[in-house]
Design a protein around this nucleic acid. Structure first.
Lengths: 106, 106
DNA sequence: CACCTATTTCGACAAGGATCGAAATACGGT
DNA sequence: ACCGTATTTCGATCCTTGTCGAAATAGGTG
């Protein structure tokens, strides 16, 4: 069920540490970031980071690629866009909500 | 901190029951839905529903308005758009995410 | 005021999450 | 084969969440 999937992804980025983590990766773009860098950047225990990373990977929001001894993490943009799409789609489905993509003002 | 707020909201809709609940309200539009209707619709204990509703309200995603003995719940669209904006904003902040497609960061 | 329906608060419980440090594994270099 | 760095897995602990049923509150009606 799509809703279950969306809920899992939302929950994944619904944790401050993971959101920060995810944000870092999203901003890093295609280059991605090594786990070590992320650990340094967030200042948390390596095991804790690994745990959060694992959760993000499970939902498909993040992918990893090995480069020698370092693991490069990347945000999975298509999945992210899907998720945003799911939310935007819910909106405006039945009533009032002046378009999601071109409002800005609010 | 904006990130903390976003995380809270994401966490709020990051639960299947609450996402279903929120979705129902979002689709209901301005009319909103009475708590009783929601309870019937979701088929969960009234106390459980109340608990979830409370969480959604705390994050600002949902509002309530009394109408005699019934409480009407409504999705807070501006907040929702803000949240979606936050996510979309993270994306494309630094690199690759051609607005809607291009590369598949698989 | 007594009563009825709608909803929340209370108390409890099982289950899952966040966090850490220590030990284990993965990979390349010497 | 051995060592060192990078990362994960293990084991433990504490806190939070989801869920329920029962009791309390809110608000209208006879």
């Amino acid at each position: 069920m799509k809703l279950e999937q969306a809920a899992k992804q939302l929950e994944a980025i619904g944790n401050p540490t993971r959101l920060k983590l995810y944000r870092t990766l999203v901003r890093a773009g295609e280059a991605g970031r090594p786990v070590g860098y992320l650990q340094d950047s967030l200042g948390i225990a390596a095991s804790t980071l690994s745990h959060h990373l694992h959760r993000l990977i499970l939902t498909g929001l993040v992918t990893q690629e090995r480069q020698a001894t370092t693991l490069i993490c990347r945000a999975n943009y298509p999945i992210m866009r899907d998720l945003i799409g799911f939310l935007a789609d819910e909106c405006c489905a039945d009533a009032a909500c002046g378009t999601v993509e071109s409002d800005a003002a609010a």
